[in-house]
Amino acid sequence: MEDALWSDCIPSDILELISSRLVAVEYFIFRAVCKRWRYTPMTPPRRPAQPEKSPCLITLRGDTGIVDFFHPVYNVMTTTSISILKLMDSRIRSSKANWLLISHGSHNMFFFNPISNDIIELPDLQEEYENICVWTFSCPPDSSSSACFVVGFDYLGNPPDVCIIKVGETNWTPIFFKNNIVYVLGDKGNLGILTINENSIPSWKFYGKSFLRRRLNSIQYVYMAEDVDNEGMLAVFLSHHEGKVEVWRYKMNGEVLEREKITSLDNKTLFVSLEGSCLKTCVAQGLGNKIYFSMFHNNNGVFYCLANRKYYSFDYLGIKAYSSSNIFNLVRPTSCIWIESEND
C-alpha cells in the first residue's frame, strides 16, 4: 500500500489555524500543496491590531451616505454603521492621506475625513465653474497644512478653464502659489503641465505627440500615479471590451517628454481608480508587479498580474481562486478612491 502523503496527516483544525494566518501569495501556495489542501475549508485571515501600511479603497454609497472600506491584502470590507447626511447624493473627486475632496450637486464642494468623520466646508462654486469635471488638491487641508489649495479644470477649451481656491478663503478667486505644478494626461495621450505662479494667471504647456486614432479608440479608461523613484508618472491604459492593460512611464527630460512602455513594476504594487491612484512598495508577499483596480468579483477585490497578463482575486472561502484574462464579470463601484490611511 502506498504511504500517505505527509500533508494528508495534518488534522483539519491545524489546517484551519494555518490558513487563518495566510495572506496574498501564501494563499495560493497553500492551495497548491496537495489535493486535500486545495479543497479544505479555509479561515479568512484576520487583520492584525497594527496592519501593514497598505492603501484601502473607499467607496461612497451616495444613496445612503454610508462609506465602505476595502482592505485589499486581507480581502475584507468594513462599513460605517451610521449614515452621514452630508454625503448623500455626493461624489468623491480626489484624495490625499485621510482626506477626500467631495462634490455635492453642481455648486457645493467640501473635504471629508472618513477616519474621523471631520468635514471642512468650501465656498459654493460660481455658476461659471459648475461644469468643472476634474479636481485635485495640493495637500491635506487640516490645521497642520497652511498652504492647501484646490484646483479644478475642464477638458473642454484650449487651454482648459481652471478654477483655484486656497483653503480658508471665502471666494473662488485666483490665488496662486509659487512652484505648484499639476500634471494632466490628455485625452490623446499627450501630457499637459499646469503651472500655478504667484500673482499671475496659471499657464499651460503641452508635451508629446498624440497617439494614433486607432490606438485612441481602443482606450476605455486611463489612470495616473506618481512614480517618485523614477521622477515621473505612470499611466495605466485599460482597453474596451476585454480590459487589456498597458503601463507607460511618462518623464520630462528638460522640455522633452519621454514615454516608455513598461512590463514590470518590480517589487511595487499599483492601486488605481479614476479619481486617484498610488504606487507603493510591495505591501505583501507576492503582490509585487501587480495592479489593484477598483473592481470586484463576487465582493472580492481584483488585481492584475503584469507577468501573467490576467486578473485574479483572493477568495479565502472559495474552493477555486478567480482568474480571468478579461473584465467581463467584474463590477466597479460608481464613487470610490484609494486612500493612503495615516491611522488605519
Rank of each mutant, 00 (worst) to 15 (best):
P41T: 08
P41G: 05
P41I: 08
M42R: 10
M42F: 06
T43V: 12
T43L: 14
T43A: 14
T43C: 09
P44Y: 11
P44K: 13
P44R: 08
P44T: 06
P44I: 08
P44C: 07
P44S: 09
P44M: 10
P45N: 10
P45E: 06
P45K: 06
P45G: 07
P45Q: 07
R46G: 05
R46S: 07
R46N: 12
R47Q: 14
R47Y: 04
R47L: 15
R47F: 04
R47E: 10
P48S: 11
P48W: 10
A49T: 13
A49Q: 15
A49I: 09
Q50T: 11
Q50A: 15
Q50N: 11
Q50E: 10
Q50D: 07
Q50P: 03
Q50Y: 12
Q50L: 13
P51K: 07
P51Y: 05
P51A: 12
P51R: 06
P51Q: 08
E52M: 07
E52C: 07
E52H: 05
K53T: 05
K53V: 01
K53E: 04
K53A: 06
S54A: 14
S54F: 05
S54V: 10
C56A: 13
C56F: 14
C56V: 11
L57Q: 00
L57N: 01
L57K: 03
L57S: 02
L57E: 02
I58N: 00
I58V: 15
I58H: 03
I58M: 11
T59N: 06
T59I: 12
T59L: 06
T59C: 10
T59K: 03
L60Y: 02
L60S: 00
L60A: 04
R61W: 05
R61C: 08
G62D: 14
G62A: 14
G62C: 14
G62N: 11
G62W: 05
D63Y: 13
D63C: 10
D63P: 00
T64R: 08
T64H: 03
T64S: 15
T64K: 11
T64P: 00
G65Y: 01
G65P: 02
G65M: 04
I66N: 00
I66W: 00
V67P: 01
V67E: 03
D68H: 01
D68Q: 08
D68I: 00
F69V: 04
F69H: 09
F69D: 00
F69R: 13
F69S: 06
F70K: 03
F70V: 05
F70L: 09
H71D: 11
H71N: 13
P72E: 04
V73L: 14
V73W: 00
V73Y: 01
V73Q: 06
V73A: 05
V73C: 09
Y74F: 15
Y74C: 10
Y74P: 04
Y74E: 13
N75M: 09
N75Y: 06
N75R: 12
N75G: 13
N75E: 12
N75L: 01
N75H: 11
V76S: 13
V76W: 10
V76Y: 08
M77T: 15
M77L: 14
M77W: 03
M77Q: 08
M77H: 10
M77G: 04
M77S: 07
M77E: 06
M77I: 15
